[in-house]
Amino acid sequence: MQNAFRRIDQSKTFQLFVIAVILISALTVGAHTYELRPSMESALNIMDMAITIFFLVELVIRYLASDGIRAFFKKGWNIFDLVIVLGSLYPAAGSTIFVARLLRIFRVLRLVSMVPELRVLVNALIKAIPQMGYIGLLMFVIFYIYAAIGSMLFGDINPTLWSDVSISMLTLFRVATFEDWTDVMYETMEVYSLSWIYYLTFIFLTAFIFLNMMVGTILEVMSEEHKLLREEQNPDADTMATSQEIQALHQKIDQLQSTLSEMNKNRH
């Protein structure tokens, strides 16, 4: 029976059907935001209950297809799906209807656990957070230094933008996101003609260097996650590639040996 449930769980048809149900669930959640007739509202509630029961059955099938409770909970995505499905069982009646619908919105996130490519993106983002945290810390230091300098230099020009360090950091965030930053620069250039150096160096550090560092970190982790996904989907691929390379190397050695032997014969 475990093999039968495993074939069902790994079936492409079954997975596509689950994805279709997730999309239908998302549409029902969106439909609840409109003013509908009582009959339509009742039909949506019945459909919502059927979707919740299906998700529960699908989760049971996945559990029966796994090698015991430890193997099931070893995968973080199974825990994620379990929490969402259990949240969907929250009764939608009376004063709790808002909370129940709010919990059902998160069923759309199950699409992430069902599509491997989306799992790769989320896993890469989660694994990149520690490295991005150090980059963010360094960015905060740069923001703080420039904010302190800006508050001392431009505080008298426009106290609304440069009165203290915290306000100056908000202004610098506006500059870093290029939200009318030239207006801020031209205002200070009327008093300090060389203040453009302050803005250009800040933009160069934050918008160009640190942003590219974050993108590079995410891309590096994503390449590792794609490699793990390929190994998971086809674990014998690397072994086959290695054996093919070894076979090709042996053929080249044989050709080289035959060429050397012919050259020796020609010499004699």
Rank of each mutant, 00 (worst) to 15 (best):
M1F: 03
M1Y: 08
A4I: 12
I8N: 02
Q10S: 11
L16T: 10
L16F: 10
F17R: 04
I19F: 13
I19A: 11
V21D: 06
S25A: 11
T28R: 11
P38I: 01
S39A: 15
S42L: 13
L44H: 05
I51G: 02
I51D: 08
I53K: 03
I53E: 02
E58G: 05
V60W: 00
L64R: 09
A65F: 06
K74P: 02
K74Q: 04
W77S: 07
N78L: 07
N78T: 08
I79Y: 05
D81A: 15
V83M: 11
S88A: 14
S95Y: 10
I97R: 11
L103G: 01
F106Y: 12
F106L: 13
R107C: 09
R107M: 14
R110V: 04
P116H: 03
L118K: 03
R119E: 07
V120G: 01
V122D: 02
A124M: 08
L125R: 03
L138W: 04
M139R: 02
F140Q: 03
V141Q: 07
I142M: 04
A147F: 01
D156N: 15
D156C: 01
T160D: 09
L161P: 03
W162P: 02
D164V: 07
V165L: 15
I167T: 14
F173D: 11
R174N: 13
T177A: 06
F178P: 10
E179M: 14
W181L: 00
V191F: 09
L200V: 13
L200K: 12
T201Y: 11
F204V: 06
L205H: 01
A207N: 07
F210Y: 13
L211A: 09
M213C: 05
G216C: 03
I218M: 08
L219H: 03
S223A: 12
S223T: 01
L229A: 06
R230E: 14
E231W: 08
D238R: 15
A241G: 00
E245Y: 08
A248T: 13
L249E: 11
Q251C: 08
Q255Y: 05
Q255P: 01
L260F: 06
H268F: 11
